[in-house]
């Protein structure tokens, strides 16, 4: 009787282990496949080229490229590591400091991010992306006025930076400057019509602050059109219904 009971207990355990092993194998397969993705091939080539780098400047440039790709992928640990290397080899290069600052921001290290981005700006004042990331850093530090200034500089240097227009709209809204915020969101949407977030923000602003139901519904709908599979689509539809849309 006992072995029978034991085997009955063991079967689900074995099945569970087998299931886990399957998942592990599937994950390993996915990792292997991901390694051959174009971005990763590019990363591998950059790592390989480090061997042939003759000068510190060459190394700094390669590490900056590696950091840039990792930052795009969202791999914060690797982005921090490679941008630190880039700064080490070329301490006076604005791009290296910009990438380091951006990586620190992604890692939630706001004071470090501020320092690196300010260094980057000192080295090249007209580089819009450093101002953009500094604006994001100040936003996370809840220093909205400074954030607004930095986003303002970003759009002055690069008027087509739709994300800076969007983010400026967010901080302006938080500062109570709603009309200016609407203009910023609208500019972001005009520059990039498939940038769904701008419509969402317009919807929320009209809904909660400006109490304009018609415009809120209109923008929520535009958001759903631009982002048909957004995770909160059900919720947004409820918002539209509540507003009488």
């Amino acid at each position: 009787m006992r072995p029978a009971v034991l085997s009955l207990l063991l079967i689900p355990a074995i099945l569970l282990c087998a299931c886990k092993k399957d998942m592990q194998e599937m994950m390993l397969e996915e990792i292997t496949l991901a390694e051959t993705a174009s971005l990763n091939r590019e990363l591998a080539a950059l790592h390989a080229s480090l061997k042939d780098a003759k000068t510190d400047f060459d190394r700094a440039v390669i590490y900056a490229k590696i950091a840039g790709i990792n930052s795009e992928k969202g791999n914060v640990k690797e982005a921090v590591r490679s941008s630190q290397e880039s700064v080490k080899y070329q301490p006076n290069q604005y791009m290296s400091h910009y990438l380091l600052g951006k990586s620190y921001l992604q890692a939630g290290r706001f004071a470090d991010a501020e320092e690196s981005l300010l260094t980057s700006i000192r080295l090249k004042e007209t580089f819009p992306l450093s101002h953009f990331e500094l604006g994001n850093t100040y936003y996370k530090m809840r220093r909205n006025d400074r954030a607004e200034t930095e986003f303002g500089i970003t759009v002055k240097l690069d008027p087509r930076h739709f994300m800076a227009h969007n983010n400026r709209g967010v901080v302006l809204s938080l500062m109570g400057k709603h009309a200016e915020a609407v203009r910023s969101f609208e500019e972001a949407a005009r520059l990039r019509p498939d940038f769904a977030r701008a419509y969402r923000n317009l919807g929320v602003l009209y809904d909660l602050k400006l109490k304009n139901r018609v415009m809120a519904v209109k923008n929520y709908r535009k958001y759903l059109d631009a982002s048909p599979n957004c995770p909160e689509r059900h919720l947004v539809r409820t918002w539209i219904r509540v507003l009488g849309g």
């Binding site: 886990k20 998942m23 599937m26 996915e30 990792i31 993705a37 969202g74 791999n75 890692a107 939630g108």
Partner: peptide, 22 residues
């Protein structure tokens, strides 16, 4: 405060569940 941070890479949509497991 962020107490832990990580990244996973998959080749396509089929990898979503194994990635979630991992």
């Amino acid at each position: 405060r962020t107490v832990y941070q990580g990244s996973k890479e998959i080749a396509g949509r089929k990898g979503l569940r194994p990635a979630a497991w991992s």
